[in-house]
Amino acid sequence: MRKYEFRWELLGDLDSGRPNLGNQVDVDLYRLMQFTVRDILEERYGADESDSIFYAAGKKAGAEFYKHFIEPVSSAEEFVSKTQEVLREKRIGVLRVEEAMLEGEGRVMLTIDEDLDCSGLPELDYETCIYDEGFVSALFESFSMKKWSAKEIDCWTTGARTCRFLVTEE
């Protein structure tokens, strides 16, 4: 019996729970939680395992996000435009597509401007958006019902001013 298995109900009823403060919170506090969790994960399990957990968590979030906010969509065009719309509306980031081959080769290159996780971070010489990688891959998996993986190839932390992901079908 799992104790913490994710369900949307676990997030609660924010309207009744925060009648004065509402459902918004500062991005730095969101990052505070993410970066401290990551800190402890690395401390206990090492950087690789920490990354692996973050990727898996992002993947779960992406799959749930797709079910909750994106579907139903009936075409690749609708999938892309709906995802762009929702990511912007939820203030997660500004998604743009550089190339999209959803059929056949299965290769998509996209960028996320003003990314919630990393925009404005200092240069660190490594890409940091592991959680996003899992999230993005799950969106494509949920849409296509095939296995996809995502790799961040440019990030604020490597000097870029947008996050660029290469998403490929496995």
Binding site: R96, V97, E98, E99, M109, T111, D154, T158, G159, A160, R161, T162, R164
Partner: peptide, 12 residues
């Protein structure tokens, strides 16, 4: 990175 940004925008 700025050049990559331009490349990315042109690809978009």
């Amino acid at each position: 990175s700025n050049l990559k940004g331009l490349q990315s925008n042109l690809r978009h």
